[in-house]
Computed example of a mutant assay.
Amino acid sequence: MFTKYKRRRQLSKVKPGDGSALPRYRLWQLFSRSLFALELAAPSGRHLFAVDVRHGRDSSSSKRPAALYRDGRQVHVANLPVTFPVPGGVIEVATSLYGVKRMHYVGDDGREQVLSPHPRSAEGLRARFDRRFPRTSAVIGAVGLVVLLVGLAVTLSVAVEQITRIEVVAAHLGTFTSPVQLPGWAQFALPAAGALAAVDRALRLKSTWMAD
């Protein structure tokens, strides 16, 4: 029930496009633009759909942050998150602070497929690295996950300590002293490492609630 309501609400965000051509992907757009594509069959034949996401835009921008193109022409625009209607299903698009977290085609039968990133985009370069160096890529992913878990544990520990310092809470539950006391350099290094880990997971479309 909630899923159907969420899909209807996101479909309602979709507005008609202006028919303009899909702009070429430029090197300097590496961190400001994501571009994904998927070929789908329709009664009129096979069509190439592309989703263009501009990370520097939001709902207050004059141009929408997400656009759907069919065979190189803009057919829909929307604010994020959004669900674009396409032949045989929908394309669900969502972003986080660190990049794209969902770019999936969901068929009417429930089948899901991740769209292919543009080879020159940050997501495309990360995917190519994963194909060429799968073991190294797996190690990077595992280390990133550990960093996120450690960061979460430290954050929760510090948060509990701060809460129990409130007089009313301390009077009923006592106080808690975090067992983790980070040196000064680590207080800056851990968040920075966590941000890098979150970006890496976003580039692989494996964002988690920890990263968000």
Score class of each variant (00 low, 15 high):
E167W: 04
A94S: 14
G99P: 14
G141A: 08
V143S: 11
P134M: 04
V90L: 02
V93S: 07
A142Q: 11
R165V: 10
V100N: 01
P119I: 03
R131S: 10
R111C: 12
T95Y: 08
V100W: 01
A198Q: 03
G99K: 02
G194D: 08
P183K: 00
L149N: 01
V160P: 02
A170N: 09
A197S: 14
T177F: 03
S96C: 06
V90N: 15
R120V: 00
P191M: 14
V169W: 00
A122G: 09
F133I: 03
T95L: 13
S157K: 10
V150P: 13
D108K: 04
V168Q: 07
P117E: 12
A171P: 00
L182I: 04
D108T: 15
T136Q: 06
E161Q: 11
Q162K: 01
R102T: 09
V93D: 00
V106K: 03
V100Q: 11
R102V: 15
D130E: 13
A122I: 08
L97M: 12
H118V: 01
S157F: 04
T136N: 08
Q162F: 02
A195L: 15
L196N: 11
I163M: 03
E167C: 04
A138F: 12
D200A: 06
Q181V: 06
V139H: 03
L149T: 07
S178G: 04
G89K: 00
P183E: 14
E167V: 02
D108R: 07
L173P: 01
S157L: 07
L148W: 05
A94W: 03
A122M: 09
Q162L: 13
A198G: 13
A189K: 13
A198K: 05
V169L: 08
A122Y: 05
V139A: 10
Q181E: 04
W185C: 09
L156Y: 00
F188G: 11
V154F: 15
I91Y: 06
A94V: 08
P191R: 09
T175M: 01
A171N: 08
A94P: 09
F176C: 10
G89T: 07
D108V: 10
E167A: 10
V180L: 02
V146W: 09
E92A: 15
H104F: 08
H118P: 01
G99S: 06
I91R: 06
G174M: 06
D108I: 09
A193I: 08
L115A: 10
S116L: 14
A122T: 00
S96A: 13
T175F: 07
A142W: 13
V147M: 01
S96N: 01
G184M: 04
V93G: 08
P191W: 13
Q113V: 03
V93W: 02
E161I: 05
R128M: 15
V93Q: 02
R126Y: 08
R131E: 06
E161M: 05
V106Q: 06
R111L: 13
S96I: 03
L125P: 02
R165F: 11
T136G: 15
R135I: 06
Q113P: 08
S116N: 02
A153C: 12
Y105A: 05
I166M: 09
L156Q: 00
V90C: 03
D130T: 14
E123R: 05
Y98Q: 15
G99T: 14
A142R: 05
P183F: 06
F176G: 12
A127H: 11
G110I: 09
R165P: 04
V143D: 05
S116T: 13
V147W: 07
S137I: 10
V158L: 02
Y105W: 10
D108A: 14
V100H: 01
H104C: 15
